[in-house]
Design a protein around this nucleic acid. Structure first.
Lengths: 110, 110
DNA sequence: TCACTATATTCCTATCTGGTTGAGTAACTG
DNA sequence: CAGTTACTCAACCAGATAGGAATATAGTGA
């Protein structure tokens, strides 16, 4: 997979997935969902964002399969669709930590 | 890591990393670098993009540590900094493949 | 039916950024 | 030194989008 040649369409699909994660607001929502299912209102309260904004970002995440939605009466319960998104974030966070500690060593030895 | 609470700054850093990958042009450059080191001109030829455009995208990737640069006379040789970016792309590609095959099953079973 | 609540959607505006163009910089050649 | 090559930088424009306000939709209960 992802080997020899990649079609421009596939490239765009992959880029769109990354773009869905390339927004602090959406990362905050995903982070809030680590604790379990949440309704939109709960996410509004936790993140401090506007309701329309939260709803809109959740649509993006849901459209790309990063979160699952379950309707229950008036409420929409959102949850992490799987562990992939956490793996993605962990790789990036690992890089940032590695760079931060490397920079600290630079300052210490420099 | 990436556990309990994440500062808004960290959230922004992570989002910026994803944003660097959220562009088909940059993914095309990274893909071209899978085969080994390449000069800017080579990448221009392979991708069909403009030279200034390639150079600018490479600055972004380099600024976020995804590619390494080595200067040799007139040439700038770019290469993948490490395997992390491939792992990230593989996770996303794996998702896309899984969804594609699931959709095929949907169509087959109706 | 009407009001109320939770969520989704639409419209608007400010901001950001990808791509292009043209100028600028640095290294090699003669 | 001038000329060429390889690359980078700066300015511009067009398209995309995050955020907020207002509105729409849908479920609930009186």
């Amino acid at each position: 997979m992802a080997s020899e040649s990649m079609s421009p369409e596939l490239m765009r699909c992959v880029a769109d997935r990354f773009k869905a994660l390339a927004e602090p607001a959406r990362l905050a929502l995903l982070h809030a969902l680590r604790g379990g299912d949440r309704t939109v209102s709960e996410l509004v309260e936790v993140t401090g964002m506007g309701q329309a904004n939260v709803s809109k970002h959740l649509q993006v995440l849901h459209g790309h399969g990063f979160v699952a939605r379950r309707k229950d009466g008036l409420f929409s319960w959102y949850s992490l669709a799987d562990q992939d998104v956490l793996r993605l974030c962990d790789i990036v966070c690992g890089r940032l930590e590695k760079e931060a500690s490397a920079q600290q060593r630079m300052l210490a030895n420099g």
